[in-house]
Design a protein around this nucleic acid. Structure first.
Lengths: 227, 227
DNA sequence: GCAAAAGTGTTAATGTTACACCCATGT
DNA sequence: ACATGGGTGTAACATTAACACTTTTGC
């Protein structure tokens, strides 16, 4: 028992990064350039570096691939996946973070082949490793958290209208919500959003009030999925 | 970049195991026999073995310390803690599982000093490593999940009364719940509990109907903490 | 009979849903 | 003028909270 050494393992951090683009939920994916699963799409990620906190590694990976300001991001730990055999190269345990980001105008200059890209989530595409399962878990987490947290605002730009926020719920849940009841619920929740006292003109219809994210992180009462 | 190797890390699995004993929430702790933190209380845990799934490691550790039948346990991943510096021996990343168990009569024979023991949670006792923070997170997770899952039944023995179940909520949340409203809510939730058609006499009062856990895992509507 | 806990029923307050209606813009 | 989306008000309905009351035991 004295000479016993723990088995060799490797730790990676992977990301389920979600955004809404053109009214469709998108996930950030990279195309693998090396075996195993060469050419297959995979969640972005990489090894945790020496003396690097897990969440810092997630932020670093995300900044390498996107250029979204960190203050507009929602980032939380999703779970850890470590089944033996999930990576043919050996025992690789991955700590997965869920990131929710607004759809910002794409930064210029990043067009090399290895770069990550936003892929619409609609189709059931094959991913490398156990990433399909992880992606499923991430989407389900986001869906669940819309109900009782203010995570929906993380899908919106810094300033957004009530319609923008409602559209997040409608797209992620795939349902229709009554705009009038929705607005009342959001405004009745202390500090979910704060008014900017400014309006935004759109293609049609009356200009909409603008809001910013408030301090609140939890919603009570929740915004219900059923309706 | 070709010769780069991922940094050395060690993976452990730790447990926040909770139960209710004598109407007080208890956590399973071990007294450390070696440095660092020798003599200090710590969460039970150990290294993940080669080709062992993470949850299997958690079950193994729990069975080594307690002898609770696995089918009566609730077990879920709580989170992964990997800040550099959390363990003075090197980079140790721990995947923590939350276990909820009924308070079974203690098995005979296990009385050696290194064995884990149930410790009442009331006092703010110093724990080894970052285990205080982890324990806090575990208790908060259990508190939150009482609202919208059937996890409360995992604190109860195989057969339990409505009063037993209500007492779980009252103890874990530290509140009083109306027995009449509570019973109605539980019975109105399909498959939260199933009746055994048998009663249990107690020290005083009318004998209570017995129930077993149902198939349901999620509660809708939730059981509210406020009231 | 009395205390204690289980269990049933009723009412008031609160929250949710559905929808009528007005507002401010582009075309 | 009309279409479109924003925004306000209200009534029907469902859920929750509070509590009066009965049941069944031990002492």
């Amino acid at each position: 028992m004295d000479d016993w050494r723990p088995p060799d393992v490797m730790i990676t951090v992977d990301l389920v990064a979600l955004t809404i683009r053109d009214d469709v939920l998108h996930v950030l994916l990279v195309e693998r350039g090396v075996e195993p699963f060469r050419g297959r799409l995979a969640l972005p990620g990489g090894f945790v570096q020496k003396d690097e906190a897990l969440q810092d590694a997630a932020v670093r990976e995300l900044e390498e691939e996107t250029h979204i300001p960190v203050n507009l991001l929602h980032l939380e730990q999703l779970g850890t996946y470590g089944n033996p055999g999930r990576d043919p190269r050996g025992r690789v345990i991955t700590v997965v973070y869920l990131a929710v980001a607004p759809d910002l105008p794409a930064p210029v200059g990043d067009t090399d082949a290895a770069a990550a890209r936003w892929v619409p989530l609609s189709v059931g595409m094959p991913l490398a490793f156990d990433h399909e399962r992880i992606l499923q878990d991430g989407v389900e987490r986001a869906r669940a958290k819309l109900e009782y947290t203010t995570i929906a605002a993380a899908f919106c730009a810094e300033r957004f209208t009530m319609g923008d926020l409602r559209r997040v719920y409608e797209i992620v849940w795939g349902v229709r919500l009554d705009p009038r009841n929705f607005q009342r619920k959001v405004l009745n929740t202390e500090s979910f959003v704060v008014s900017v006292n400014e309006v935004r003109r759109q293609d049609s219809g009356r200009p909409a009030q603008l809001y910013m994210r408030g301090r609140a992180r939890l919603l009570y009462p929740s915004i219900l999925r059923s309706q």
